[in-house]
């Protein structure tokens, strides 16, 4: 028993030493939190209710929304770039799974003025390979190998009122595109940059990224389900247009909440 407590003391001591030796750096930083919200032209998204109308006049509903945001970076006013690296810099969001709607990466944000935040919708080609995620829920985003592999960037599943008032299902799925004969693949992921304007002295640590679903269907390409049909995974032209629209689908707000400084 004596020997036991001696060992404890020794390991505690060495731990203390460890902490002490890290305390030299002076830069203060905060822990960022990224929150994800979804709405349709301003009203909070309600699933499974046929009450949204897009630019083309399609009445539609959304049942499921799942997607990846990756490579989040913060750009300071002086040009310094701070990347979020936690979780291989990829975060999965499912509107039905509340734990995915808040991301608390381990990275620290230095205290400084920030000009913008950037992120990728989807996953870049260096990382988007089948086998990256073996466990659910991310695994269930897999994109078939024969269609380029990796993972869906986004799945939005719903229904729309088609001609003759018939309700039809749609699968708005984005990922690696393919030409007709399967010889060329297209990386459809895209980067979004949003201004932050964080002034000195008003530091923020909570960043809320809001997706306005309606924007996926608005501009530059007016999206009409009656024209595209309910499935687009093998329609590179449609996926490309969807991604052009998606670049306008996000907004960011920021606030300082219970800031804990780290030295």
């Amino acid at each position: 028993m004596k020997f036991f407590s001696f060992r404890w003391a020794l390991s505690l001591l060495s731990l203390l030493f460890l902490f002490a030796s890290c305390g030299k750096e002076r830069v203060k930083s905060v822990a960022p939190q990224i929150v994800f919200k979804h709405n349709c032209n301003g009203s909070e998204l309600q699933k499974g209710i046929l009450n949204y109308t897009n630019q083309a006049g399609n009445i539609y509903q959304v049942n499921e929304l799942q997607y990846f945001i990756s490579e989040v970076t913060f750009t300071a006013a002086d040009g310094q770039i701070i990347p979020i690296t936690t979780d291989n810099a990829i975060h999965y969001i499912d509107m039905d799974v509340s734990s995915t709607l808040e991301w608390n990466p381990d990275d620290r944000l230095p205290v400084t003025q920030y000009a913008s935040i950037s992120f990728v919708v989807g996953i870049n080609e260096a990382k988007n390979k089948t086998g990256l995620f073996l466990n659910p829920p991310e695994r269930d985003m897999f994109w078939p190998d024969i269609m380029g592999g990796g993972y869906h960037y986004l799945k939005m599943n719903g229904k729309w009122k088609a001609d003759g008032d018939t309700i039809k299902p749609f699968n708005f799925h984005l990922g690696i595109g393919m030409n007709m004969d399967g010889t060329t693949f297209y990386q459809n992921y895209f980067k979004v940059t949003l201004p932050l304007n964080i002034q000195a002295g008003t530091l923020s640590n909570v960043f809320t990224i809001t997706m306005n679903l309606e924007k996926w269907f608005e501009a530059p390409n007016v999206w009409n389900w009656n024209v595209t049909g309910g499935q687009i995974m093998q329609n590179q032209d449609a996926m490309h247009k969807a991604c052009e629209n998606g670049a306008n689908a996000f907004q960011v707000t920021h606030e300082g909440k219970d800031i804990v400084y780290h030295s």
């Binding site: 049942n63 499921e64 229904k159 088609a162 749609f170 699968n171």
Partner: peptide, 10 residues
């Protein structure tokens, strides 16, 4: 009630 992933259902 059919799940939207049954997109051929219609």
């Amino acid at each position: 009630y059919v799940h939207p992933l049954m997109h051929h259902a219609y």
